[in-house]
Design a protein around this nucleic acid. Structure first.
Lengths: 220, 220
DNA sequence: CATCTTAGACTGAACGTTCAGTCAATAACA
DNA sequence: TGTTATTGACTGAACGTTCAGTCTAAGATG
């Protein structure tokens, strides 16, 4: 509300961003308050001042990162005209195909999120909500495509569930640098599944013709 | 070698088993030497005596658990006569369908494994080896089924990759108790995919007719 | 405009705790 | 007796959190 409050929010975001970076680099359970403070250029006391508890900071940082990923993807998807293109874009974002080399690093946060969720109700709730939204996004695209005659009529919810799971499972392999699965291979595998189940045509060559979208410059 | 050595190995396994239990319950990064020692009924010093470092203990515990799961599954799979039945059994084990309620708890270890792998070369190597073996197991079953005319000819390696990823992705949801995905739902989704892609028939009703295999009594 | 008040932003130092790993001593065994 | 197994007591470091207080700048007052 007050102009004072704005400064506070900026700091808050700054700390969250720092936390995300540190977690991605060192892992959730090796991330200390001091690490985050150093990355943010402040003191450990300030971090506690803003978040009260370490657990809260970490939980909010995970949520923050995922929210950003979702928002970015949703925006990119919304720009596409056809349901088919929207689906391709969604999968492309999930695989980070055509983006910066280290862009996939954000996926490593999911591993930490999944590992923490069983013992942290807050994290579990956030994950559940985000996953729900994600699957709904997929299912909606499928239904739109079916309504437009682009896709074959299949159970949209079940397909969304399978595709989301497939993406997660393959993403694990890519993040852990499994020699058999590159980002491009992951993309091809996902699109192959989509094309076969939804009844549209797709070949790996199509991947090369994708327009690499311009990325909005990140501030700060 | 020596009889003394045997006692030592028993202790070693005892500690590993205790570590697995504690990790599954408290999570990898909240597992302390003392927790493991208490669970094993010994002292923290002895745990260090056997494993030297905490990291080594944890890495070996994860490897130990996964190895057990793989061995158990491989054994169950080998008992089946047809490739189709072997595949069903493999998927059934993965979903813990028809087993004890809390049997799926072992899956939670995978979450910790995945979260640690990016920063622990030992864990990463174990995971890679196990995953490779797992996918090979699937691919072999597929090829056997194709040779026997049970399955349609598709790329066995690619199918194995997709099925393994699908299982992992769905398992995450089950472990995290996503309201939309029970073990049975997971099983049906996996088998539906298998049946469609490999060209055999499968309906959810078939699940009810599965013979629940007798589980070898665990010692200790 | 000058000065005082106040509240929020921020920090350095210290505290209390936790915990992995050490070590010397003891028990079990061959 | 010598070797291995086992432990209680201890340590040193790391770390989350607290706290007492400083600094800054926005209002209030005159």
């Amino acid at each position: 509300m007050s102009p004072r409050r704005k400064l506070s929010d900026a700091r808050r975001r700054q700390i969250l961003k720092a936390a995300v970076q540190v977690i991605a680099e060192k892992g959730l359970c090796d991330t200390g308050i001091k690490d985050v403070a150093d990355q943010a250029g402040t003191s450990p006391a300030l971090v506690i001042y803003y978040f009260g508890k370490k657990d809260i900071l970490l939980a909010e940082a995970l949520s923050f990162a995922d929210e950003q990923f979702y928002a970015r993807t949703a925006e990119a998807v919304a720009e596409m005209a056809s349901a088919r293109d929207r689906l391709v874009e969604l999968v492309r974002c999930s695989c980070s195909v055509g983006e910066a080399e280290d862009d996939f690093d954000e996926w490593v946060l999911w591993l930490d999120l999944w590992a923490r969720a069983p013992r942290d109700p807050d994290v579990a709730r956030d994950r559940q909500a985000l996953d729900q939204r994600w699957r709904t996004t997929i299912a909606d695209i499928v239904r739109e495509g079916q309504a437009a005659g682009e896709f074959v009529p299949v159970d949209a919810a079940a397909f969304a569930l399978r595709l989301a799971a497939l993406i997660d499972g393959l993403a694990i392999l890519v993040v852990l640098q499994d020699p058999e699965v590159t980002r491009e291979r992951m993309f091809d595998l996902c699109m192959d599944t989509c094309a076969r189940e939804l009844g549209f045509s797709w070949t790996p060559e199509d991947r090369a013709h994708l327009v690499r979208p311009h990325r909005h410059a990140a501030s700060g």
